[in-house]
């Protein structure tokens, strides 16, 4: 079973204490103090692919739209068990909307032979939750989004569970080849082994620029997009909590008193 996994490198802003600062262009963020990681949901997609490969054989190809620095994320996924990678990289791809991004990613899949395409259900930076399902439509594949359980049943069929609101699972049968967007928590992603990391350094990362995609300048980036993010702003702050002042012993004493007064202790 050959699997394609779409992965993305994102700034790590998940920590509640990490501040995101808008840069001088108003359309980007100040990256100088941020570290970069694999998108959380994509990490689970890679793990699911490796587990399916271990069980059913086949090869895993990674497809990533990103700068050279994204090689770090690609190498780590190669070290965990993916076999090869394609990185789409061209300045002209900047400011693509999700549909255009899917169109660019599609060019990397067009020459590949696959039974399954996996990707994270959402990217933690832009949060669009759209690229996988849009790509499935472009490839003419059946799809399912927010998948939290995957099982191969018989020839060319999968039984999958979509995680709905409130934790309800919606079980579906999907014909292969298909595309699934993977929800976090579906598995426990492994760490790469030293042997895997050594081997990964010898695996191929093919790079595709705009010319290699066969798309024109007008079809990608801002020019090729119909719903572009034009301007970032700092969200308006709603009414804030009453902030208790002082050091930890003072604030905790104040809070203990408040809770006692309210009959909550």
């Amino acid at each position: 079973m050959n699997i394609v996994v779409l992965v993305k490198q994102v700034p790590d802003t998940s920590d509640p204490e990490t501040e995101v600062i808008i840069d001088s262009t108003g359309r980007g963020i100040d990256e100088s103090k941020l570290s970069f990681v694999i998108n959380d949901a994509d990490n689970y997609a890679v793990e699911e692919a490796v587990r399916l490969k271990e069980k059913h054989g086949g090869e895993i190809t990674l497809v990533c739209l990103g700068r050279e620095s994204a090689n770090q994320v690609i190498r780590m996924a190669l070290a965990k068990g993916a076999d090869s990678a394609i990185r789409l990289d061209d300045e002209k791809f900047s400011y693509s909307d999700p549909i255009t991004t899917a169109k660019i990613l599609k060019t990397a899949l067009d020459g590949l032979d696959y039974d399954l395409v996996l990707t994270g259900c959402m990217a933690s930076d832009d949060g669009y939750t759209a690229i996988g399902v849009a790509l499935a439509k472009m490839l003419g594949l059946p799809h399912a989004a927010m998948v939290k359980s995957v099982e191969v049943i018989g020839d060319n069929k999968m039984k999958i569970g979509r995680e709905l609101e409130g934790g309800l699972m919606e079980m579906n049968e999907v014909d292969m080849p298909c595309l699934l967007t993977i929800q976090t928590g579906i598995n426990e992603p492994r760490y790469a082994s030293f042997k895997g990391i050594r081997e990964a350094s010898r695996k191929e990362i093919k790079v595709m620029d705009l010319a290699a995609t066969g798309l024109s300048e007008e079809e990608v980036g801002e020019a090729g997009s119909k719903a572009v993010m034009a301007q970032y702003s700092v969200p308006e702050v709603g009414e804030l909590a009453e902030i208790l002042e002082g050091d930890a012993s003072e604030t905790s004493a104040k809070l203990a008193e408040i809770l006692k007064e309210k009959g909550l202790v």
Partner: peptide, 24 residues
Amino acid sequence: AHTTQGVDVAPALAVELDAPFTTE
């Protein structure tokens, strides 16, 4: 709606309609 139903439908529908599309 940007729900588990909506995100399963809307991006594919946008491709089919070739319509300007954004989410949430």
